[in-house]
Simulated assay, not measured.
Amino acid sequence: MQKLAAPATAMEVRLAYARVSSRTQEIQSQIDALEASGVHRLFQEQISTRVRERPEMKAALAAAREYRSLGAKVTLVVHEMKRLGRGALELLKVAEELRDTEIELEFLTGPLAGKHDPAGHGAALFAFFAAMA
C-alpha cells in the first residue's frame, strides 16, 4: 500500500486499486496511470483472480467506507474493469457494495472509461458490462 498526496479538499477522497494475477504480469503501468489521475491513496496486490479473498481490495473498500462515513465524497479508481473482478457475480457484488455506501467508481480505460455513480444512471450500464465480463 502506498500513500500519496493529501486530498485537495477535505471533502473529496480518491482511492485507487491495482491488481495483477501473476508474477509475470507488470503492475507499474497501472500504478503510473492511477497516480497520474490524482489519487490520494493506492492499494495494490499480486493475487490470482481465483482467490476469493483479496486483502488489498478489502482494505481499499474498508478505507472507502470509513472516509464516506466521515462525510467525504469517495471515488474508487481502477485502471480497467477486469482489475476489479473477473466474473459478473464478483463485479455486481462490488457494484452493489459501492452503491450501498454511495461510493463512486472510476475506470481509466476500457468500455466504461470515466466516472460512474453506482446509484445513478451508470448503474444499468455497469450491470450490462459486468454481465458480459
Rank of each mutant, 00 (worst) to 15 (best):
A36G: 04
T49N: 06
A95Q: 05
V74N: 01
H79C: 02
G85W: 03
L70W: 12
I31W: 04
K73Y: 08
L92R: 07
R19H: 15
G87K: 11
V78P: 03
V13N: 00
K115T: 15
F43Q: 00
S29M: 07
V20Y: 11
F129E: 06
M132H: 11
T9C: 13
A88C: 13
A59Y: 04
V94E: 03
H121C: 11
L84P: 01
L76K: 03
G120W: 12
A124Q: 13
A127Q: 09
V39G: 01
A130D: 06
F129A: 06
P111H: 13
A95W: 00
E53G: 06
L91I: 05
A60H: 02
M81A: 03
E35W: 04
E96S: 12
R52G: 15
A64T: 05
I31H: 04
K3V: 13
Q46K: 15
S69W: 02
A72H: 10
L42P: 05
R83I: 01
Q28V: 14
E35L: 08
L98I: 00
L4V: 09
M57F: 09
L112N: 09
E12P: 05
Q25V: 07
Q30L: 08
S29L: 08
A59W: 06
A95E: 04
E56K: 02
P55Q: 11
A131F: 01
Y17S: 08
K93N: 11
L42I: 07
F107N: 08
F107I: 12
S29F: 08
E53K: 11
R52C: 10
V13M: 14
P111V: 14
S69V: 05
S21T: 14
T49I: 02
A10N: 13
Q46T: 15
Q44D: 08
E45V: 05
L91P: 00
E12G: 07
V13I: 11
A10W: 09
R83F: 02
E26M: 12
I47T: 08
L92T: 06
T109C: 10
L34A: 04
L70E: 12
K93Y: 09
I47G: 02
E102P: 07
Q44H: 01
M81C: 05
L92P: 04
K73T: 13
R41D: 02
A6N: 14
L34C: 01
F128S: 11
S22Y: 14
G114T: 11
H79L: 06
A10P: 10
Y67Q: 03
A72Y: 06
L61V: 06
M1S: 09
T49M: 07
R54W: 01
S69A: 15
T109A: 13
L15I: 07
R65D: 04
L89V: 12
M81Q: 05
V51H: 09
V74F: 01
A63M: 06
R86Q: 09
F126Y: 12
